[in-house]
């Protein structure tokens, strides 16, 4: 049969190209545009080349907030993933309590992020907050608005409270998909609780856990709303994570060039880590 040359098919791609252009490519190109030029806000631009990139990458301020970001993300992943799996394992798999547990677990995920921040801010206030008063009452010198360690503690506690549920729900979905016959087979083999977890549940949950870790990595690396409402990056700069720093540069100091350069670097870090992580997990899967 002869091949018919027909370019009309491209027309069908136009809507999605337009959509992606407007919500992703054009905004991104605007940022790229700012990142290589200097402007004084009067719509006049001067070519700056890679100046802003050099400046950002060499600035101690960026290093510090990047380090804080890495510590934050690593900490919450180290807590939320094992905790989420542990909670999922203790949840009932059958019966009337299943919907109750699921709703309770989903509850934190349904609260708007700024509300989470405001809630924890008030909850942790040393003078009037339940948590703050309680901690001080039992003898801790706790004040998250003044002591950096306390601010970090509160920030991590808030994130664990807010997001562990996501890991729980995903792990739970993985767990309930394991047929009962696996557990019976394990019982016949005389496998104990740990062996069942290690050789049946964990391998069967691997796929959903990969997704959970990936989502938690990306989200926590971009955390802004809750953190800024809770601590505003303080005390001092002690909880100024990457996104908070970025907003300070862009909207506080109105340094559009460096802010744009930083956005791109920030974006590339997330993209790179996610890609590497995903590729490794998928390769592992195939072997």
């Amino acid at each position: 049969m002869n091949k018919t040359v027909n370019q009309k098919a491209w027309l069908f791609v136009v809507p999605v190209v337009l959509l992606v252009a407007f919500n992703a490519i054009i905004p991104l190109m605007t940022v790229v545009n700012y990142s290589v030029q200097e402007t004084f806000g009067d719509n006049t631009f001067f070519w700056a080349g890679v100046l802003w990139f050099e400046q950002v990458l060499n600035s101690e301020r960026f290093h510090d907030s990047l380090m804080r970001q890495i510590i934050f993300t690593a900490t919450i992943l180290a807590i939320e993933v094992p905790l989420g799996v542990a909670i999922a394992l203790t949840m009932p798999r059958k019966g009337v309590w299943v919907p109750v547990c699921l709703v309770l677990m989903a509850l934190p995920l349904l609260i708007p992020w700024n509300v989470v921040g405001a809630m924890w801010n008030i909850f942790a206030l040393p003078e009037i907050g339940l948590l703050g008063r309680m901690l001080n009452g039992i003898g801790f010198d706790y004040n998250f608005t003044r002591q950096p360690e306390d601010a970090w503690f509160t920030l991590i506690l808030m994130d664990v409270w807010h997001w562990t549920s996501l890991v729980v729900l995903l792990s739970y979905a993985g767990l309930v998909s394991i047929p009962d016959a696996y557990y019976q087979a394990a019982k016949i083999d005389g496998a104990g609780g740990w062996a069942i977890f290690r050789h049946i549940q964990l391998p069967k949950m691997k796929r959903v856990l990969t997704i959970a870790i990936l989502l938690r990595f990306m989200d926590s690396f971009m955390i802004y709303t809750e953190a800024v409402v809770l601590t505003g990056g303080g005390p001092g700069n002690s909880t100024t994570l990457l996104s908070i720093d970025l907003v300070k540069i862009a909207l506080g100091q109105f340094d559009l060039g460096p802010a744009a350069a930083m956005s791109l670097i920030y974006f590339l870090i997330i993209l790179l880590v996610s890609w590497v992580f995903y590729t490794l997990m998928m390769r592992n899967e195939q072997q």
């Binding site: 047929p179 016959a181 696996y182 019976q184 087979a185 016949i188 050789h199 049946i200 391998p203 069967k204």
Partner: peptide, 15 residues
């Protein structure tokens, strides 16, 4: 000393 085979193919996935 019992063994059982099921309708689903039950094996240890990572062995």
């Amino acid at each position: 000393n019992v063994s059982m085979v099921y309708q689903q193919f039950i094996n240890y996935p990572n062995y």
